[in-house]
Write a protein that binds this DNA or RNA. Sequence first.
DNA 1: AACATGGTCAACCGCTAGTTA
DNA 2: ATAACTAGCGGTTGACCATGT
Length: 222
Amino acid sequence: MGRAPCCEKMGLKKGPWTPEEDQILTNYIRKYGHANWRALPKLAGLLRCGKSCRLRWINYLRPDIKRGNFTPEEEETIINLHQILGNRWSAIAAKLPGRTDNEIKNVWHTHLKKRLKQKPNTIISQIKNEPSSLTSKSSETPTSSLPLSPQASSSEITNNMEDIFPEIDQSFWSDFSEISNELEQDYSYYGLDSSVSGLDEFWYELFIRAGNGQDQLQQLWS
DNA sequence: AACATGGTCAACCGCTAGTTA
DNA sequence: ATAACTAGCGGTTGACCATGT
């Protein structure tokens, strides 16, 4: 499979965007949309590659972008989701309307990672002491009203996670479903307790086991 | 005032998955 | 089936700015 050539042709501009370029790109997309990023710069009259245009639009020019500092609630959501999803920035961004994966990634590396390093046990102890708090805060849905019974099996949990995190894209859930099925088939191999009875305990078990066998878990998520 | 250092964030790079011919 | 291509993702870089010495 050949690698797509990008920005290799001489004459294409790189580096920071000027207000004029922003204006041209915004006007073009408002008028014609962005069905084909590769063709767009030529059609719009920009000396940029399609990739650069796409990034500029998604991370900066899109009208629904929320500017300004992250709220404590947003930061908490990022921390919680990162515990579950790892570095799946686009999946985390899907849970935070108006925030981009790039922005979340930057915030994580510049602020949140350090904060967690200072207090490494905060999240796990929060889960352990008050397991329902994480789920209800991050999903804005009270645990009691989740579409799960306290006796839900892991497959039921898996099937209902799309309702709990509706904005996360479909591909993630198909991956997750596959992994969860494998887990259910061989609980003992991964060291999970098959008597785990509900969502909170399921995640708690998973986090605790991740602490002891992170390699196995990383393999599962990769 | 001048320089060093560290933090922030926009943008780029390289890879993969999905689509099309 | 497979080669060519595009879109999207996560990691990394580098310019800029603030702060410390």
